[in-house]
Nucleic acid binder design. Structure first.
Lengths: 152, 152
DNA sequence: GTAATACCTAAACCTGACTTTAGGTCAAGA
DNA sequence: TCTTGACCTAAAGTCAGGTTTAGGTATTAC
């Protein structure tokens, strides 16, 4: 059993955030002793899942729903599975987006390295993909088609 | 030259968002004809970079700074390179985080598939990593060490 | 002529996820 | 005794990134 201050240190989260999570219903059935919150292994586990689901982009109200399902027992396994599948897909999509963003950033880094060497962008302005180093061309092509399709 | 409505369709962004970007200084030097915004190739390019930098997690005020540097010319190449390098690193870190989140979600999906088959979590509760299928164990281990280190 | 559209501004409003403030209880240490 | 520190609540404040509203102009469509 941990106090809120101990959990705060354990997870490196402000006490105010833990109280906020509690107020939002993220620890259903958490015990108290004369008004003071007692975090058991159950709440610690919950917090681990909360951190994961938050990083996956889930909102507090949906995490609350998940916690409710956990309380309801085995009848909600399908809903919980569905939730994790949806989040898995959404993180996969986010990873794809970020890979494309990274390719664009790689290209931009190369671009400004060249610009600094040249002292201007004259040469770069007329550059075609064929004239770029291979890795840069691939970064460029990875990051540009989606944009060009909509705007050219 | 495009009107705001045309650009809105091109980029699938609300007109209000484009006006907001303009108000925030993301299109320095954009021309107007009798009060009406004229988006030239320059602003279209800017918008492409804005979308990329936004996806990389940069804030509007930093994007504004970047646009200012672009206006200032070749003397700011180093600043712009620095910016893209920072964003590149920050996206790489975000990708790592998301890979760990994805491993956790993969594990959770497997967990609830098992729970549904078993009808309960009895078996799962006492499961050790060694008893998991190999791909699940690796997902589990990818996603858990960081948490365990802090909380056990 | 009038109604629908596309544009404009300034300013108020919204949302999510916290954080801060103001005020209070209770136990331990100097 | 008194003050420090850890806990508590309710309510207000903050921040980013927009969106909505209210009011206005100019052009085109019927």
């Amino acid at each position: 059993m941990y106090t809120i201050g101990e959990v705060s240190k354990l997870f490196d989260l402000p006490v105010s955030t833990l109280r906020y999570y509690d107020k939002e219903g993220l620890f259903p059935g958490m015990r108290r002793e004369s008004g003071i919150r007692k975090f058991s292994e159950k709440e610690i586990d919950a917090l681990r899942v909360i951190e994961c689901l938050k990083k996956s982009g889930l909102e507090i109200r949906d995490i609350k729903q998940f916690m409710k399902w956990c309380v309801e027992g085995s009848s909600t396994y399908p809903e919980r599975l569905e939730l994790f599948r949806r989040q898995k897909q959404s993180v996969e999509e986010e990873l794809n987006r970020l890979h494309r963003v990274l390719a664009m950033l790689r290209f931009k880094c190369w671009y400004y390295e060249q610009a600094i060497q040249d002292g201007n962008e004259e040469r770069l302005r007329v550059l075609t993909p064929e004239e770029m180093p291979e890795d840069i061309r691939s970064a460029y092509e990875q990051s540009h088609p989606a944009l060009d399709a909509g705007t050219r």
